[in-house]
Design a protein around this nucleic acid. Structure first.
Lengths: 344, 344
DNA sequence: ATGAAAGCGCTAACAT
DNA sequence: ATGTTAGCGCTTTCAT
């Protein structure tokens, strides 16, 4: 690590920021008039507007939003507590765009899938008096929020519902997605289809595994040894796959229950990946440059994010409105891996 | 999209939040005592502490951070203006972790590679009186920040330097990275090596293309038709590749200048990818599950993020300290694609 | 159309 | 060890 040190920065210490009062003095008007100009109040004389604007420019004045918020009682900010800032996060991006369109800033914090960090993040947002929170819930119990909810805090869960409290939620249609994946594989001749996915203690893991079992039951396929929910680790996924692919009647197709499982499965399969039909739940960038391209059930992140902000805004406007759960459709994206035939 | 509407939320409108004064009354003490307890001032009697704590719990009181900030004159927040919230962003994650370790919250906003949005985001952060800003600069001129900088705002650029203003910066060692890539390909027998990368109007594009030319010159390899900097679009990358791979003396190896170019190149090459040696600048998740695995020059995002916060904190403490540019080493990660031999 | 004064919720001097 | 008072920078009655 190289450190290149340049000449000292030509600024001696922190100069005091100009306040509204400074602007007022500079322009020779009352404080109130500056406030009016800043807030585009039409009842200010044109000449004064010009004078105030000039003073603002001369002093490089920018209003202190904290003071505005404090006085106005609203923060113009929504909190977003998401699992991770490092991985691709299309929902966060969609929330950001929808919020900005609604004139709201986004305070994003990561929970790192840790219950305590989630709680810290959310509480910190509350202390900042955000106008609402979008959360990808991690813990099972969110009753630490019941006081805030009773106080009128708009809270929208995405991807999975909150536990222990009534809150609006935006979920993907997990059952339909698994159905699409199963059908696609069936249509391409597969009878022995396996599922490896998330732990059933996690909402989506539970929903998807259950939907898979229902599909198998409905189609009269074999179920024994074909369903492997559990913690997503390299070793567990490897073990599940080797079990599913060995024995007298190995699976010829695989459904993976989330991106992490999909990646681990592809990693384990290595060059064999082209011989096993695979459909993954949830899309990810680069799924299309794999060989063969990965067929996935894609969630509609853009709609999820926008809907979350819509619900948030709606609840802000009417805190007493009924709690709502919106289910967003998913889509099958065929890229090759799900259309491989079973071995002859 | 299905909307499931449940019973009305059992909360009629927004109840007023308890203030510190409410707590004081509830506990039968003075406002100042509550403030002391909230701030863990040791000079409060044990019995009063208990009483105040009880009142806080009873009322579900949480201090208003905006008011604290306003009064304290500091916000405890750093702004992070990054290109994108949707793509993988390891630097943002590292900034988040380092900031949280330093007791700072992170206000992340995306610039979407748009000069105006960057400006809006940064100005909004200034109005929120953040304690500093980490920026992935997009525009060429950042002199709209000169007043803030003169006022003492700590500003740290990551990935590329700011233009037109003096600010601390954390950069990857682009020249060394290109050198590593070039050497790896040379060692594996390649003489005709091509480079496709970002536009030279962009700082990293310029540095990497220049480093590549220097490598070719130093090794006495062919240069004509081998360097293709430019806007990263599917069509431009395709055109560059088809030019480089055709003719009497086609390239046998390729260096791609950033992730977007790498992806487009892989997309274009398709099944041919296994026949051309490739080293990509910058790592990305899943580079290891490609076949062959993609050899990359990996930037050290964790160090970049941590260093950015370190510089920020250092400048906060001493606004007059010399401006500093830190160069962070990169690392070659060999996964197969860069170790392919030239065709016999 | 403009200004004076009160107060948002909190912390920091200064008593006591 | 605890309470009183002022004021952070702004918006908002209420006068004029």
């Amino acid at each position: 690590m190289t450190e290149r040190v340049a000449a000292p920065r030509g600024r001696g210490g922190r100069r005091k920021r100009p306040t509204m009062l400074d602007v007022a003095r500079e322009a020779g008007v009352a404080l109130r008039t500056v406030s009016r100009v800043v807030n585009d109040d039409p009842t200010v004389g044109a000449d004064l507007v010009t004078r105030v604007r000039a003073a603002i420019a001369a002093l490089d004045y920018a209003p202190d939003e904290r003071a505005q918020q404090l006085r106005r009682g609203t923060s113009g900010t929504v909190g977003a507590a998401v699992r991770n800032l490092a991985d691709a996060h299309p929902v966060l991006s969609a929330v950001d765009n929808a919020a900005r369109a609604a004139g709201l800033a986004v305070l994003a914090m990561s929970t790192e899938d840790d219950e305590r960090r989630e709680r810290d993040a959310v509480m910190s947002m509350c202390r900042r008096r955000v106008d609402g929170i979008v959360i990808e819930p991690i813990g099972t119990s969110h009753d630490y929020l019941s006081a805030e909810l009773a106080g009128g805090l708009p809270l929208v869960a995405v991807d999975r519902p909150c536990g222990g409290v009534e809150a609006d939620a935006v979920l993907s249609d997990n059952a339909a997605g698994i159905g699409m994946a199963y059908r696609q594989l069936s249509v391409h001749g597969h009878r022995r289809i396996a599922y490896v996915g998330d732990d059933e203690r996690i909402f989506t893991g539970r929903e998807r595994a259950a939907a898979f079992r229902a599909c198998v039951a409905a189609s009269g396929g074999p179920l024994a040894g074909m369903v492997h929910p559990g913690v997503v680790t390299a070793s567990r996924v490897s073990a599940a796959l080797s079990a599913v692919l060995s024995g007298p009647a190995p699976a010829t197709a695989l459904i993976t229950g989330n991106v992490a499982t999909t990646i681990e499965a592809l990693r384990y399969l290595g060059a064999e990946a082209g011989r096993l039909a695979v459909v993954g739940f949830d899309d990810f960038p680069l799924a299309d440059i794999l060989r063969p391209g990965l067929t996935v059930v894609a969630q509609n992140s853009a709609v999820i994010g926008r809907t979350a902000i819509d619900l948030l805004v709606a609840r802000s406007a009417d805190p007493a409105r009924p709690v709502q759960t919106v289910t967003v459709p998913v889509e099958l994206v065929a890229r090759g891996s799900g259309e491989l035939p079973p071995p002859a």
